[in-house]
Amino acid sequence: MSKKLVYILSAVMVGGLFSLLNIPAGWLLGSILAGMVCSFFIMKIYLPNKLFTVVLAIIGANIGLMLRPEQFLNYQALLLPFFITLTITIISGILLGKFLKRYSNLNHNTAFFCCLPGGASEVIALSHQYGANEQVVAAFHTTRITLFVLVIPLVVGLNEPIAGKQSNYFIDVNVSQVFLSISILISIMLVTILLSKRVNFPGSSLFFAIGLGFLCHLLFPTIEVPGFIMGIAQSIMGAIIGIRFDRKALLQLKEIGGISAITLFIYFMMSLGLATIFFVLTPIDWLSSLLGIVAAGAAEMASTAAALNMDAALVATLQMARVLALFLALPFLIKLFANTEQE
């Protein structure tokens, strides 16, 4: 327990240092790098899954408290462009899986599950049932998410002057205001955990937390959560992501060969192309489109948007819709494209 606590505190400190140095999404990036260094060169630490749920609840609550009712009016015009990009995303993922199968020694189902765009935990859990190499699938998705969460915030932060102006996490705040905001966050967190246990679906923790945060905003419209709380939550998330990427995952990809790196590169370029399509079809700017469309995790991308003073609610909505849509389509995709007989 003490080792886990020391690791998390160290990751938060590194994240805070990155933020002070004005590195885009510094809290998140700094802690991810700290986690990778720890995993590769110090020791492998296993953090409980409940910790990620708690972090999701805090981040979601922050996003919900920033949400305004008029924003929902703009989302209706995004339905058709979102459906178009989602369809292209799924088709591209299937084709990329066929490409990986063609030029690697992986069996059909392993390549198929490696390239499904999103819902990593659900995809990994199902892959074993269909004769796929679960370790390879987990390594591929872990690498993809880690790579995207490292690169995307830098791409956004360095190319958007407005977004690059990060929130000031170390401002002076009223003590009573801090106490009220923390009390609200704790309440939302507890209710979110309870609801997630009773009604569980991909992204449920983030969904419930954003909804509860929005309701609390309607009840307490003047409430403002100190920025350092969001920063610490981002650092803990980064610590969880960073520690998952280890030598074992790297060795798994190395065994596949250089085609794994090529596939990940194509995956990244595909995300840039999808963001461009969404940008052309909507009034949303390209960088917000990138955060909303890229298959890199709802919480991670929404957290990045919040850190860079962008529309985190929009990003979270697009990301959660993608994950939920893929989750609903997954049984049909498996039936159509996966080998029913275990290989």
Rank of each mutant, 00 (worst) to 15 (best):
L47G: 01
K50T: 14
C38I: 15
I32A: 01
N49E: 15
M13I: 13
S19M: 02
I42R: 07
I23S: 01
L20M: 12
I45S: 07
L21W: 10
A57M: 07
N22L: 12
K44M: 14
F40W: 11
L29D: 09
A34D: 03
P24W: 05
M36V: 14
L28N: 03
G15R: 04
G60Q: 07
F41G: 11
S31K: 04
I42C: 02
G30N: 08
A57G: 08
A57P: 00
K44L: 14
M43H: 12
L21V: 09
L47S: 02
F41E: 13
N22A: 11
I59S: 08
V37L: 10
I45D: 07
I32D: 00
A61F: 01
L51F: 05
L17E: 03
L28H: 04
K50M: 14
I45M: 06
F41M: 14
L51P: 04
T53R: 15
G15W: 06
G60E: 02
M36K: 11
L21C: 03
N22P: 05
N49M: 15
P24K: 08
F52H: 13
G15Y: 04
V55P: 05
A57L: 09
C38M: 15
L33Q: 06
N49T: 15
L56R: 01
Y46N: 13
A57C: 07
P24Y: 07
I58E: 00
A61P: 08
N49K: 15
F40H: 09
L17H: 01
I32V: 10
L33E: 08
G26N: 05
K50V: 14
M43I: 12
L17Y: 08
S39R: 11
L21M: 09
F41A: 14
A25S: 07
T53K: 15
P48Q: 02
G16P: 00
